[in-house]
Amino acid sequence: MPLQVAPAPAPALRSVLAALSSPTAVREARTPSLRNATGPLVAEHPLPLHVLDPVITEPGGLPRARLTGWRFHIRTGEKVAAAGETVDTPDGWAFSHFCEGPYLASTERALRQADALTTPYQPHLLSVPGLYMLTLWLHADVASDAGTAQPAPSDLLIPLAPAPPGIAAHRMHRLSDLVPVLTLRLAPPPLLGTTA
């Protein structure tokens, strides 16, 4: 198995498990599939969730990523019913919310794609808020700390569906090839009356 999943911080996992064991938290979740789930709910596939900051770059011109939380898939039987997210607070990791939608199935599909590779990678989720885009980020440094990992040229990105127009979902891109496209799309438009 080429995917080297980084262990989630124990307090992050505990906060999701506590929310899952709270009938109030599950009942009030905005996730019908979680509310209607039968059988035990299991938190699995912990993935560090980062936000790409195209303005701040590392040496070599690659944008920096900032860890914002951990996402766990919540499984009931054979089905992923929802995801549970945690955030880092001044008091430590805390449960944030449950969610569902197309990114769940897309993440599962991208993880299967990545698992078929022969090179080992450390999986992360990478959000590009300015494009409403979420990707599976395959970090080549499998020994790195998931909380401080930064994009590297040899890393791969798999855009999740739905992807922004003109970017194919589930097509693997070398990070160094996709970043110029993202940077161009995130750049502010030229002012009226100026030439590019």
Rank of each mutant, 00 (worst) to 15 (best):
A110G: 11
M133D: 08
A12R: 00
R75F: 09
P90I: 00
P153I: 07
H45T: 15
P46I: 05
E28W: 10
P188Q: 12
D145V: 07
G77Y: 06
L125H: 03
A12N: 00
V87T: 11
G166R: 07
G166W: 02
T118N: 10
L192S: 13
P59Q: 06
A65L: 09
L117K: 11
S176L: 08
E100F: 09
F95I: 06
P159H: 08
Y121L: 06
G84A: 14
A81K: 06
A105Q: 13
Y121C: 02
V55G: 01
H97D: 15
R174H: 12
G77Q: 08
K79D: 13
E100S: 15
A116V: 00
L111A: 04
G147Y: 00
Q4C: 12
T195F: 07
V179Y: 10
L52T: 04
P23S: 08
V5K: 09
A105T: 11
I167K: 08
L131V: 05
V16K: 09
D177H: 12
V128K: 09
E108R: 12
L47H: 07
A187Y: 03
V42W: 05
V16R: 10
A116S: 15
L186C: 03
T38E: 12
R27M: 02
G92I: 01
G101V: 10
E44H: 05
P123A: 01
L104T: 04
H50R: 02
L3H: 03
L49T: 01
A146D: 09
M133C: 11
R64I: 00
A82K: 06
A6H: 07
L138S: 07
Q4H: 15
L125W: 00
R30V: 01
P159Q: 02
D91R: 14
R66T: 14
